[in-house]
Design a protein around this nucleic acid. Structure first.
Length: 554
RNA sequence: GCGCCCAUAGCUUAAUUGGAUAGAGCAUUUGACUACGAAUCAAAAGGUUGAAGGUUCAACUCCUUCUGGGCGCGCCA
């Protein structure tokens, strides 16, 4: 939390000027790391705010304030410069950065980790793909973003439970079971396979049917619904496992929509009764409608059809209620872009249940399209069987590359996954670029193991010897790790960490070319070795949070 | 028709959420392996940030309109 500490300190210093000039509004005040082309540690726009209010010259005010800051904080600020249009750029004393490197070396794989920081209990729901087929590449994106983000949140002291909600009830499941059954029958009489329009197609259905033929002698013994879901669930879990994604809990819809209490009522029954009693639900044309438009939804929604059967949405209400009943105080849902229309209605429900809708945070990720040498295949439809399975991609490009390509971009824009390029670049690939840093570092460490007269005690290292631009940039970048984690936390976007690691690798490789680590100058060698060690720590911590391996040899 | 998201270099994209000269990678051109791993580095070239207005000292970022793309709008899930 080095950046935060400095910002807090600077805030105190700078706010005094705001007050002395009678400015109350702090919302436009910024203290942040300047763009890369600016040589400074921090920058503030305070002078422009003040000058604007008083109608004074930006530069003159900036110079006045910056001079004053230097004079009053000699132990903290190295120098301050004014650049047009009126920024004050601050250089922090080098020792503060060295201290942070100390901290990295000392805390190692726990550097940046926070403990018991939050009282809230988070439930993070993601993937939740229907058990009607194997996961496709779009689900993969959700799985990776959700998994990496929850790793980051946990690392920052949040109490996170990762949950997969399984819709194992309803028409789609009946339909699925029917598909397997038909396939089974046709296979038994050795018929040519024919699927009707609404049935699920795909080799996995045939595989399941074949397995059932082996397992059972008579069709009457088979519970097709149970068996099919079981088999598909096995597939989904396998796919997630090879992506290195693990859930803490699998929540079955049957628990809400099928299981009954001693009064013969399901959770869904009960929630509907509650909603009716509160006048949040009403009967129209024989169906039960939720008055969600009262709470910001575009229109009211049917939760129980006139034929008496509940909609999927009814279970969803019960599910979110259940999350609160399990004492979760913050709900995070990661949804594919096709679900954006559900945000308003589910937020409406949460208000009806008497909870704060702010407790629910919904992250939407846009779709993935797959490109192969020119041709684009987009539609990921489980029903038609036209989709690219996550497994096939994993088999082709590997877990690390797959995860990283999902993590490098913001969730908010559509992702074009170029399989051929990912394969071709398997050597020249951003993941390898980062992993190579670790390999190079470890190679150096190994090489100097037998060297004598190297200083290993951090306290005796003279970091002032690390004087080149490459070293200074590398040090500064290392110290931004915590800042990046909290940015990812704040924006719920793990991609900041991914791009940060690419930049770190970039800075390390430059350093590596320019600065020979092992040399006759023992003091310098010792200092550079410590720098290399801290690079290893950050790279390993970072990749671990992204769920990517970090081999010492490649 | 209504709603959500997107549009940045030839391609894939970033920009710490309103800051300074819009950063990378791939592809192209040039140079560097008898020093710690060349899966690397150095350099060149490539941009009116889809268009037009507006707000602001400051706009890729916010507002309005338009164009193009994705997705969603059922008593489907």
């Amino acid at each position: 939390m080095m950046k935060q500490n400095i910002v807090n300190k600077l805030n105190k210093i700078i706010k005094k000027y705001l007050e002395s000039y009678g400015l109350v509004d702090e919302s436009k005040l910024s203290i942040k790391i300047p763009p890369k082309n600016i040589d400074a540690d921090f920058a503030t726009n305070i002078a422009m705010l003040i000058a604007k209010k008083n109608g004074e010259d930006y530069i003159i005010v900036a110079k006045k304030i910056s001079n004053d800051i230097i004079k009053k904080n000699p132990n903290f600020i190295e120098k301050a410069e004014v650049l047009p249009p009126g920024f004050i750029n601050l250089h922090i004393k080098k020792e503060i950065f060295y201290k942070e490197i100390f901290k990295i070396l000392k805390e190692k794989n726990k550097y940046g980790k926070l403990y018991k920081k939050h009282n809230e209990k988070i439930i993070f729901e993601f993937v939740s793909a229907n058990p009607t087929g194997p996961l496709h590449i779009g689900h993969g994106r959700g799985a990776v973003i959700g998994d990496s983000l929850s790793r980051i949140l946990s690392y920052l002291g949040h109490n996170v439970t990762k949950e997969y909600y399984l819709n194992n009830v309803g028409n789609q499941i009946l339909n699925l079971a029917e598909s397997t059954k038909n396939c089974y029958k046709q296979l038994v009489i050795n018929d040519k396979l024919n699927f009707s329009k609404n049935e699920y197609k795909g080799n996995y259905i045939v595989d399941i049917a074949k397995r059932l033929i082996e397992k059972y002698k008579n069709i009457t013994e088979i519970d097709f619904q149970k068996e099919t879901v079981k088999e598909i669930l096995k597939m989904i879990k396998n796919d997630l496992k090879s992506l290195d994604v693990k859930f803490d809990n699998w929540f079955f819809e049957t628990k809400l929509a099928i299981n009954k209490d001693i009064n013969g009522k399901t959770e869904v029954d009960k929630i509907c009764e509650y909603l009716i009693s509160k006048n949040y639900a009403y009967i129209k044309n024989g169906a039960l409608w939720l008055a969600s438009s009262k709470f910001g939804d575009d229109k009211d929604r049917v939760i129980r059809r006139s034929n008496g059967r509940y909609t999927y949405f009814a279970s969803d209400i019960a599910y979110h209620k259940n999350k609160f009943e399990r004492k979760f105080t913050k709900l995070i849902n990661l949804w594919g872009a096709d679900h954006h229309g559900y945000i308003k209605r589910i937020k409406a429900c949460i208000q009806m249940l008497g909870f704060n809708q702010e407790a629910l945070k919904i992250i939407i990720y846009q779709f993935v399209s797959v490109v192969r040498d020119g041709g684009v295949s987009v539609a990921m439809s489980t029903r038609t069987g036209e989709f690219i399975t996550l497994k096939s991609i994993l088999d082709e490009v590997g877990k690390d590359t797959c995860r990283f390509l999902f993590l490098l971009n913001t969730a908010n824009s559509q992702l074009e996954f170029n399989v051929d390029l990912a394969k071709k670049q398997s050597i020249k690939n951003p993941v390898f670029y980062i992993q190579y840093v670790n390999a190079r570092c470890n190679s150096i460490i190994k090489k100097c193991k037998n060297k004598k007269n190297i200083t290993t005690n951090i306290k005796n290292i003279n970091f002032n010897l690390l004087n080149t631009n490459e070293e200074k940039k590398l040090i500064k970048h290392l110290t931004e790790f915590c800042n990046i984690l909290s940015l990812s936390e704040k924006t719920m976007s793990p991609h900041y960490l991914a791009t940060y690691l690419v930049e770190l690798a970039d800075k390390y490789h430059t350093f590596y070319e320019k600065c020979q680590v092992l040399s006759d100058n023992l003091d310098l060698t010792s200092a550079r070795l410590k720098l290399v060690e801290s690079v290893i720590i950050i790279i390993q911590n970072g990749l671990k949070l992204l769920g990517i391996s970090c081999p010492n040899k490649m």
